[in-house]
Computed example of a mutant assay.
Amino acid sequence: MKRIALILFVFLTYSLSTFAQTSADAIVGVWFNKDKDAKIQIYKKGNEFFGKIVWLLHPKDDEGQDKRDKENPDDQLKKRQIFGFEILHDFKYNADDKQWDSGKIYDPKSGKTYSCKISIKDKGSINVRGFVGISLIGRTDVWTRATI
């Protein structure tokens, strides 16, 4: 009987630790932005999460050149290419709130960087909330899971 209890305890402990790990990694993958004109790959580095643009619906500008970060307020950064650019930085999983917070998001359409938090909306979508100061002053976009 003790042996069965021990096996059951080990199984439950393993299951719970696997579930906890899966919860933190739930945003890892490729996501369409709300306009479906870009795909962002969210990945983990150490204990933090980042995201970069891995696909663009329109990768070229009007002159046929690769799109650049032309809205950036820093003139030196206006030349960097949008494709492959890391737009999500330094997110940490908060198990208590079941969200990823303390991160930043860069919007290449406006050239602005915002504080940001991410939460799971449902199985195939996430809420990405960018804000200035407190999260009450901001906007939430829904991103949907995509394939590469």
Rank of each mutant, 00 (worst) to 15 (best):
T140R: 01
V128L: 12
Q76E: 14
P59S: 13
S102P: 02
H58M: 15
F9I: 12
F85K: 06
L16T: 15
K34D: 12
N94Y: 09
L77V: 04
Y93K: 01
L88Q: 07
K117P: 08
S110W: 00
Q76G: 06
Y106F: 03
Y43N: 05
H58D: 15
W31E: 07
S110E: 12
G138D: 03
K104R: 07
K98A: 08
T140S: 10
R3E: 11
K109F: 09
S110L: 06
I27A: 11
D97P: 07
K45M: 06
R139G: 06
I27G: 11
G29L: 01
I105D: 08
K112F: 00
R139P: 04
H58E: 15
T144C: 10
D62H: 06
D35K: 04
K34R: 12
P73G: 05
G111F: 05
L8P: 10
I4F: 14
S115V: 01
K52N: 14
E71S: 07
M1D: 11
E63P: 07
V54R: 01
I87V: 08
C116I: 03
E48L: 08
R68T: 15
D96V: 15
A20C: 14
E71Q: 08
D141K: 08
L16R: 14
I120T: 11
T140H: 08
W55N: 07
S15F: 05
S102A: 04
W100I: 02
L16G: 14
I87K: 03
Q21R: 06
V54T: 02
L136I: 11
L12G: 10
Y106M: 07
L77K: 15
D107H: 01
E48S: 15
V132Q: 14
E71D: 09
F50I: 06
F9M: 14
D66E: 13
R68A: 15
A146W: 02
D74C: 02
W31D: 07
N47K: 12
V54Q: 00
F50G: 14
I40V: 13
K78E: 11
A95F: 08
D61P: 14
S17D: 09
V54H: 00
G84E: 00
D69P: 07
I118P: 13
S17M: 07
D141R: 03
D37Y: 00
D141T: 10
Q99A: 12
S15Y: 08
K39L: 09
I134G: 10
F83K: 15
E63C: 01
D122Q: 11
